[in-house]
Design a protein around this nucleic acid. Structure first.
Length: 111
RNA sequence: CGAGUCGGUCGGAUGAUCGCGGUAGCCGCAAGGUUAUCGAGGAAAGUCCGGACUCCAUAGGGCAAGAGUGGUGGAUAACGUCCACCUGGGGCGACCCACGGGAAAGUGCAACAGAAAGUAAACCGCCUAUCUUCAUUUAUGGAGAUAGGUAAGGGUGAAACGGUGAGGUAAGAGCUCACCAGUACUUAUGGCGACAUAGGUAGCUAGGUAAACCCCACUCGGAGCAAGACCAAGUAGCAGGUGACUGCCCGUCACACGCCUGCAGGUAGGUUGCAACAGGUUGUUGGUAACAACAAUCGCAGAUGGAUGAUCAUCGCGCGCAAGCGUACAGAAUCCGGCUUACAGACCGACUCGUCUA
């Protein structure tokens, strides 16, 4: 679990990011990033039913959460981020997920 | 030792590093920090039953409709659950299986085959009579037709209107008799009861299907924690403006048309409901048992885009010569009691049958 300040909690904010944010995709995950006026970078996860059953989805979410924690500082301050998992993520190891997130972040840095 | 039946338990372990949520204490105005402690399951699943709880409806009662249940007795808050027993069926046995009321209240249904699937019915066969014809031993036999009798035999089917034997008959038939099976009514005994055992009477046979309609008995108001309660931005709504005539009310005039104040309503959002009880464990007593009573003891998740973890190492277990691979089903969402379904593997207890030894 991320600290409360780093969690994106309101469904209205999340849907706003999904609609209007910029997408950066990798093999296993897709980042949706949008700027906001708040001080903290906030993160939310979207793991759909096509990824697997409840146990698998929860496991992927936990792995993503721990993989993103050291990378939060790499986002521009005040970013709102939604990390969407693709179906192939259910087979991935922690290091693979971590690599994917870094790859997507490098795309963000270039833009 | 082998084969099996029933019931139950567990379902990875340890360490290191980095994290999250609740509660309590302390510090802090607060944000928060810090210490301690707790933090997924046997099915948390399917959401199929039953309750608690909440709101709505309801004077009280009845009838109808609709839905559900269906051997008997008990357990329980309740149940479609559980226990014991009965009946029927299966197994050498331990034991297992059964949506187990009514088919002589009525309506309906039954593929294919078959003559016929129900107030029965004549395809083959068997028997009798009449007629025709053939043969001869001249009153008998064969063949055919017509009319009738016959459910014993054949054949069909999942199922065909009791079974065996004897009498009887033209041939047959519960037509009659004996025994057996079954039905209805009834008596006695045992049992709380379902029912069992033994007898009597009747009529001689009454098919299946009620998870088809239906009949009988019993049960049921509806919606659900996104219930409900409280607080409450914003927007829109209603009320109240300031000055002068005039000290107050009404009225008139001027200024402003924005802001402020109040109000109820209640959206976003927040708080609550929300975790200490039909509670777990151990023991004693009662009960065949389900279970109940009593005593001691324990405190045992509470999130809300949703915590309960991530990574690494070592070990365990299974497969494999080894490298190595695998390590199930599955993630709380108001809470309990059940049912059903999924599940790698490990373990314990009771009992049955067989073989060997003593």
């Amino acid at each position: 679990m991320l600290p409360a300040s780093a969690r994106l909690r309101k469904s209205s904010e999340i849907s706003a990011v999904m609609k209007s944010g910029t997408r950066f995709s990798a093999k296993l995950v897709v980042l949706h990033v949008a700027q906001s006026s708040s001080e903290h970078t906030k993160v939310a996860f979207a793991v759909g039913k096509n990824v697997g059953n409840s146990v698998v989805r929860h496991k992927v979410t936990r792995q993503l959460r721990h993989a993103i924690t050291p990378l939060i500082g790499s986002f521009p301050a005040g970013s709102h981020v939604v990390i969407r998992a693709l179906p192939e993520a259910n087979q991935a190891s922690f290091s693979q997920l971590s690599e994917n997130l870094k790859f997507a972040l490098s795309k963000l840095a270039k833009s």
